[in-house]
Protein backbone atom coordinates (compact mmCIF):
# COMPACT_ATOMS: atom_id res chain seq x y z
CA UNK A 1 0.00 0.00 0.00
CA UNK A 2 0.94 3.64 -0.45
CA UNK A 3 2.10 5.43 2.66
CA UNK A 4 -0.69 7.44 4.32
CA UNK A 5 0.29 10.82 5.75
CA UNK A 6 -1.73 12.33 8.59
CA UNK A 7 -0.89 15.76 9.98
CA UNK A 8 -2.23 16.92 13.35
CA UNK A 9 -1.91 20.54 14.42
CA UNK A 10 -3.22 22.81 17.13
CA UNK A 11 -2.07 24.20 20.45
CA UNK A 12 -0.65 22.69 23.64
CA UNK A 13 -3.26 21.14 25.92
CA UNK A 14 -5.72 20.06 23.19
CA UNK A 15 -4.74 16.40 23.31
CA UNK A 16 -3.07 16.39 19.90
CA UNK A 17 -0.10 14.29 20.95
CA UNK A 18 -2.41 11.73 22.56
CA UNK A 19 -4.56 11.55 19.42
CA UNK A 20 -1.47 11.03 17.23
CA UNK A 21 -0.22 8.34 19.62
CA UNK A 22 -3.54 6.47 19.39
CA UNK A 23 -3.52 6.43 15.56
CA UNK A 24 0.12 5.34 15.47
CA UNK A 25 -0.46 2.54 17.99
CA UNK A 26 -3.65 1.34 16.26
CA UNK A 27 -1.83 1.17 12.91
CA UNK A 28 1.06 -0.68 14.51
CA UNK A 29 -1.32 -3.24 16.06
CA UNK A 30 -2.73 -3.78 12.57
CA UNK A 31 0.73 -4.70 11.33
CA UNK A 32 1.72 -1.47 9.58
CA UNK A 33 5.08 0.25 9.81
CA UNK A 34 4.51 3.57 11.53
CA UNK A 35 6.50 6.73 12.06
CA UNK A 36 5.20 9.49 14.25
CA UNK A 37 7.21 12.67 14.60
CA UNK A 38 6.66 15.66 16.77
CA UNK A 39 8.76 18.14 18.65
CA UNK A 40 8.12 18.37 22.35
CA UNK A 41 10.10 19.31 25.40
CA UNK A 42 9.55 23.06 25.50
CA UNK A 43 7.25 22.79 28.46
CA UNK A 44 4.46 25.23 27.74
CA UNK A 45 0.73 25.13 27.42
CA UNK A 46 -0.91 27.06 24.62
CA UNK A 47 2.05 26.93 22.19
CA UNK A 48 1.97 25.47 18.66
CA UNK A 49 1.86 21.67 18.47
CA UNK A 50 2.11 19.50 15.38
CA UNK A 51 2.48 15.78 14.94
CA UNK A 52 3.23 13.89 11.73
CA UNK A 53 1.94 10.32 11.50
CA UNK A 54 2.98 8.17 8.53
CA UNK A 55 1.55 4.69 8.05
CA UNK A 56 2.61 2.18 5.42
CA UNK A 57 4.44 -1.00 4.50
CA UNK A 58 7.86 0.62 4.85
CA UNK A 59 8.10 4.27 5.90
CA UNK A 60 11.31 6.24 5.42
CA UNK A 61 11.07 9.94 6.34
CA UNK A 62 9.69 10.65 9.82
CA UNK A 63 8.17 13.91 8.57
CA UNK A 64 5.62 14.49 5.81
CA UNK A 65 6.88 16.15 2.67
CA UNK A 66 5.44 19.59 1.91
CA UNK A 67 2.11 19.21 0.05
CA UNK A 68 1.89 15.46 0.65
CA UNK A 69 -0.42 15.19 3.68
CA UNK A 70 -3.48 13.03 2.93
CA UNK A 71 -5.37 14.19 6.03
CA UNK A 72 -5.12 17.44 7.95
CA UNK A 73 -6.58 17.42 11.46
CA UNK A 74 -6.45 20.98 12.81
CA UNK A 75 -7.68 21.89 16.26
CA UNK A 76 -7.35 25.64 15.91
CA UNK A 77 -8.07 28.09 13.07
CA UNK A 78 -4.72 29.89 13.08
CA UNK A 79 -2.77 26.62 13.13
CA UNK A 80 -5.03 25.26 10.38
CA UNK A 81 -4.23 28.20 8.13
CA UNK A 82 -0.53 27.99 8.96
CA UNK A 83 -0.28 24.28 8.12
CA UNK A 84 -2.73 24.12 5.19
CA UNK A 85 0.11 24.23 2.64
CA UNK A 86 1.12 20.75 3.82
CA UNK A 87 -2.12 19.20 2.48
CA UNK A 88 -2.20 17.36 -0.86
CA UNK A 89 -4.28 18.93 -3.63
CA UNK A 90 -6.81 16.15 -3.27
CA UNK A 91 -6.17 15.69 0.44
CA UNK A 92 -8.89 15.66 3.10
CA UNK A 93 -9.19 18.70 5.35
CA UNK A 94 -11.09 17.76 8.50
CA UNK A 95 -11.28 21.28 9.96
CA UNK A 96 -15.04 21.57 9.38
CA UNK A 97 -15.55 18.35 11.30
CA UNK A 98 -13.50 19.86 14.13
CA UNK A 99 -15.66 23.01 14.21
CA UNK A 100 -18.76 20.83 14.33
CA UNK A 101 -17.27 18.59 17.01
CA UNK A 102 -16.42 21.58 19.21
CA UNK A 103 -20.10 22.54 19.20
CA UNK A 104 -21.35 19.00 19.68
CA UNK A 105 -18.99 17.80 22.41
CA UNK A 106 -19.59 19.66 25.66
CA UNK A 107 -16.24 18.75 27.29
CA UNK A 108 -13.38 20.03 25.07
CA UNK A 109 -11.11 17.31 26.48
CA UNK A 110 -12.92 14.73 24.33
CA UNK A 111 -12.84 16.57 21.00
CA UNK A 112 -9.55 14.90 20.06
CA UNK A 113 -11.10 11.46 20.45
CA UNK A 114 -14.17 12.49 18.45
CA UNK A 115 -11.81 13.58 15.65
CA UNK A 116 -10.11 10.18 15.79
CA UNK A 117 -13.54 8.64 15.28
CA UNK A 118 -14.00 10.82 12.20
CA UNK A 119 -10.53 9.90 10.91
CA UNK A 120 -11.19 6.20 11.48
CA UNK A 121 -13.81 6.25 8.70
CA UNK A 122 -11.07 6.97 6.17
CA UNK A 123 -8.45 4.46 7.39
CA UNK A 124 -8.47 0.70 7.08
CA UNK A 125 -7.56 0.04 10.69
CA UNK A 126 -9.57 -2.56 12.57
CA UNK A 127 -11.92 -1.48 15.35
CA UNK A 128 -10.15 -3.93 17.65
CA UNK A 129 -6.83 -2.13 17.14
CA UNK A 130 -8.41 1.29 17.73
CA UNK A 131 -9.87 0.03 21.00
CA UNK A 132 -6.58 -1.52 22.08
CA UNK A 133 -4.69 1.68 21.22
CA UNK A 134 -7.11 3.77 23.28
CA UNK A 135 -6.81 1.35 26.17
CA UNK A 136 -3.02 1.73 25.99
CA UNK A 137 -2.88 5.55 25.87
CA UNK A 138 -5.88 6.78 27.85
CA UNK A 139 -6.29 6.73 31.64
CA UNK A 140 -8.68 3.92 32.70
CA UNK A 141 -11.18 6.28 34.34
CA UNK A 142 -11.69 8.16 31.04
CA UNK A 143 -11.59 5.13 28.72
CA UNK A 144 -15.32 4.36 28.48
CA UNK A 145 -16.23 7.95 27.76
CA UNK A 146 -13.50 8.14 25.10
CA UNK A 147 -14.70 4.98 23.37
CA UNK A 148 -18.22 6.39 23.39
CA UNK A 149 -17.08 9.68 21.82
CA UNK A 150 -14.88 7.83 19.31
CA UNK A 151 -17.90 5.79 18.18
CA UNK A 152 -19.93 8.98 17.91
CA UNK A 153 -17.28 10.49 15.59
CA UNK A 154 -17.08 7.29 13.59
CA UNK A 155 -20.83 7.19 12.99
CA UNK A 156 -21.11 10.88 12.17
Amino acid sequence: METINILFCGTGGQGILTAAEVVALAAMYDGYHVKKSEVHGMAQRGGSVESHVRIGKKVFSPIIECGKADYLLSFEKGEHDRMFYMLKQKGTDLFNDFVEASKKISNPKFVNTYMLGVLSKYLSISNESWQQAMKESIKPQYLDKNIEVFTQGNRN
Binding site: E21, A24, M28, H33, V34, K35, K36, S37, E38, V39, H40, G41, V59, P62, I63
Partner: peptide, 10 residues
Protein backbone atom coordinates in the same frame (compact mmCIF):
# COMPACT_ATOMS: atom_id res chain seq x y z
CA UNK B 1 19.10 14.66 16.53
CA UNK B 2 15.76 16.00 17.72
CA UNK B 3 14.06 14.42 14.71
CA UNK B 4 15.35 10.95 15.70
CA UNK B 5 14.95 11.45 19.45
CA UNK B 6 11.29 12.48 19.14
CA UNK B 7 10.18 10.17 16.33
CA UNK B 8 8.37 7.00 17.34
CA UNK B 9 8.28 3.80 15.31
CA UNK B 10 7.78 0.06 15.72
Amino acid sequence: TTRIAHTKEN
